[in-house]
Amino acid sequence: MSEWIEACEVDDVDEEDVIRFDHAGKTFAIYRSPDDEFFATDGLCTHEKVHLADGLVMDDIIECPKHNGRFNYKTGAAKGAPVCVNLQTYPVKVESGKVLVQIG
């Protein structure tokens, strides 16, 4: 059953940036878009299992730090070689200054 998990404080993530969030043996990436919205995806690149939290956020794109593979972090869509498999995304909400992710 899915549940809302507190991932971080709003201020933990800079605008147009990403942080890593680990929970129950899984790793996630929490994004803050340039227009101040929050998103969440699996934390590892689908290409070579590298942590996306070390990557670069540009507009709607997260770029993997190892091979520069790109995903749309809002939809999880892979945007071309060397990434071919989409990222899993998760619903996110902000309550009382905390970022909650629905995992399950």
Binding site: H47, K66, H67, A81, P82
Partner: peptide
């Protein structure tokens, strides 16, 4: 070569 270079970095 895009893929061979990805392997080179891995």
């Amino acid at each position: 070569w895009r893929w061979s270079h990805a392997r080179h970095h891995t």
